[in-house]
């Protein structure tokens, strides 16, 4: 893993076609904004979204053999946790 120090407005080039620029720093929010330039063929995703889909796929991969034939008969969803 590379760890590179960059100032606001500075860019990291990854290969010939990908650039990542530090466009804003919000210390109070504990976050930075990145601008990413990449070819359309390169997927750019927030990693937690990929992980959420991956773990949901794993959960979905073990369905019971008997599926609910009438969805309305199922108990209502549990209330969302706060």
């Amino acid at each position: 893993m590379f760890i590179i120090t960059r100032k606001l407005g500075e860019t990291v080039a990854i290969g010939d076609q990908v650039e990542v620029t530090l466009v804003a720093v919000q210390l109070s929010q504990n976050q930075v904004r990145l601008g990413i330039t990449a070819p359309r063929s390169v997927g750019v995703y927030r990693k937690e979204l990929l992980q959420a889909i991956r773990s949901e796929n794993v959960r979905a991969a073990a369905p019971p053999d008997e599926l609910p034939t009438d969805l309305k008969r199922l108990p209502p969803p549990a209330p969302a946790e706060k």
């Binding site: 979905a60 369905p63 609910p68 969803p77 549990a78």
Partner: peptide, 8 residues
């Protein structure tokens, strides 16, 4: 994709 949960 569908997930069959315990309650929904």
């Amino acid at each position: 994709l569908v997930t069959i949960n315990d309650h929904d």
